[in-house]
Design a protein around this nucleic acid. Structure first.
Lengths: 348, 348
DNA sequence: CAAAAAAATGTGTTCGAGCACATTTAAAAA
DNA sequence: TTTTTAAATGTGCTCGAACACATTTTTTTG
């Protein structure tokens, strides 16, 4: 364990005052070349790291960290984020971090823009957002950069090439995982990819998953399997059951379903009523899915872990503000495979 | 967001000096009843939380947090702990936390005692240990209490009723998970529980897992399945393959194997050479297991996640020392199900 | 060469908690 | 009532970084 040096230590070693050391460290200029040399020499020797605690105490600010995500009454997928927020509040309140929650209508880009702009107008220190709408998210991101508000995103990628600090999962890979699971559960047959009831903004989301799923089977190149895809949308097909029933009647060889959204329970419901033999893999630990998982009508769920995403995102921001910790450009969380026996520990 | 009160704020509100407030907060006595009342009244009103950063700065100590666990050359299971240690060092060094690594021979209770005692003699601030040996761990734990060294355990429970801060998994439940997985992978047959090459000290470990496994199938009560258990020990049966081969010849109806230790690859090796049809579920992301996972000769692994256990344990201790955060009595980590498609993200 | 301006360097205060020590007030003894 | 002793209360310094401001040194100009 090396000694912890302070600015005062350095100043004594270099034979200058702590003010001079401070100016060197912060590159504030007004330092003679000879003094600069002396200080830099010491700095090289000792590998100085400023005490983040003293730094933070001196700063002594209350930082406003805001999180912006869809309202839960539309999609219980987001509910676990509340737990993450509560935990963050408990852990970081005393450090001078204030967490604010802002919500928007997951079906309305306008609502997103309104909420985000209202939020920016209050000049928070940092924002973590789940950006469902690509175009609008870009605008908001740009605005944050202009106003020097630190911005991170979670759950949805808005730009693969840009440098928004992103916390989430490799969606393509989740598709491969689903494929592997259905491969384990079945030996042959038609596998059906089902996109249920999603808005346009999630299209890329679902597409990534579908691509991953297909990629796995293309790689395997097993003639025993064939894969097809359908879209179900509540507004078009008011009755899920009838739609699925007629589809399955004309395609009797289906042995497994991969649902690309949280609405896995819709397929599971159909399974219990009509085709008990098919295997189902889907997404997310929402209540209705867990019910089916327990009953056996869903075989596996893939956990997108919104709670962990939100928590990690908020934590990154808080520790950056408090202790100047670097925020990773991309945090890819592990992809959890969930069955009836291990879901409990993953719940909020 | 409520205001952050300081001791000075309180002293002004109560009309006393900050010294008096300090005495009330720390119950140091020497406070008149009238002053006590005034201060307590304010304290009730504002719900004061001391600033952990100021506290920590004042303290300004270098804390020694030590971790004690088996040497890796015997069992690569422990290797990921090194990553946890490195991460902790990077994150907490500047806060005045020094992490020390101490190792012992996983086959020798004496070695454990020696290392632990030598460690205690240096009077560290906190110890996190993986206590393989029940009796000896009890002794060490008691000694730590006497010397007022904070002690946590991980991976192995030493006493279900005691209050050692434990970080690990519900082993019984991991057995149930393995059972559910083999249930998913097969439709009937004999399932074999295999305990491979473990020392006595792990007996309870393995027993818990076996019990969980059996419990699942007892609950299911499916006549299509039957379950049996075998022990293999390298010292007794020098050749794993021969032993398994003869066993499988006399029990031809086995469809799945549950290996209760990291040595799952032993069963997988047998599978590739002789019985490609059987399904295998086992434990831990050690290199040899991952090889088989990729090749398909292991179907699922259950991740005991030693890295996360060590990290969580060290973190609890560090934040307790630095910021007086309470250490949870028991931290049960989620039990990860791993297949060939999601192991990557769980690796160190 | 002295005065003025500029550059360089040093000093002192702040953040909040905690504790040693100084000072004041109240109670007990003479 | 005065002195002694004890109890109560207040003051001031520390931790390390950061920055404002004061002081010193060097350079420029009349």
């Amino acid at each position: 364990m090396m000694k912890k040096y302070t600015i005062k230590d350095i100043s004594e070693l270099a034979g200058v005052s702590k003010g001079t050391v401070d100016r060197v460290l912060h590159k504030r200029g007004k330092v003679s070349e000879s003094a600069l040399k002396k200080v830099n020499k010491i700095l090289e020797e000792i590998e100085y790291k400023p005490n983040p605690i003293a730094k933070s105490l001196k700063n002594n600010k209350i930082y406003r960290v805001c999180i912006l995500f869809p309202r839960s009454n539309q999609d219980s997928f987001w509910t676990p984020c509340l737990t993450a927020i509560k935990e963050m509040e408990n852990n970081y309140q005393a450090f001078g971090i204030s967490i604010e929650q802002h919500r928007y209508d997951s079906k309305s880009p306008t609502s997103f823009l309104e909420q985000a702009n209202a939020l920016i107008a209050t000049k928070p220190d940092a924002i973590l957002m789940a950006p469902l709408f690509y175009q609008e998210a870009q605008i908001i991101k740009k605005r944050c950069f202009e106003q020097e508000i630190i911005i991170s995103t979670f759950n949805n990628v808005i730009d693969k090439n840009s440098l928004t600090n992103y916390i989430g999962q490799d969606l393509f890979q989740t598709g491969r995982i689903a494929a592997k699971l259905l491969d384990s559960l079945t030996t042959s047959g038609d596998l059906l990819i089902v996109h249920i009831d999603e808005q346009v903004q999630n299209a890329t989301h679902m597409q990534e998953k579908e691509n991953g799923f297909k990629h796995y089977f293309e790689e395997k190149n097993d003639p025993a399997y064939s894969i097809s895809t359908i879209n179900i949308n509540k507004t078009l097909d008011t009755n899920y059951f009838e739609f699925l029933d007629s589809y399955f009647k004309s395609n009797p060889n289906i042995t497994g379903i991969f649902v690309t959204t949280s609405k896995t329970y819709v397929a599971a419901q159909f399974k219990t009523e009509s085709r008990k033999d098919i295997k189902i893999v889907g997404y997310d630990l929402v209540e209705k899915n867990i019910e089916h998982l327990k009953k056996g009508s869903i075989d596996f769920l893939i956990n997108q872990n919104p709670k962990k995403q939100a928590f990690q995102g908020l934590r990154n921001l808080a520790e950056h503000l408090l202790f100047a910790k670097e925020i990773p450009k991309e945090t890819l969380l592990p992809i959890d495979i969930i069955n009836s026996e291990n879901y409990r520990e993953y719940l909020e």
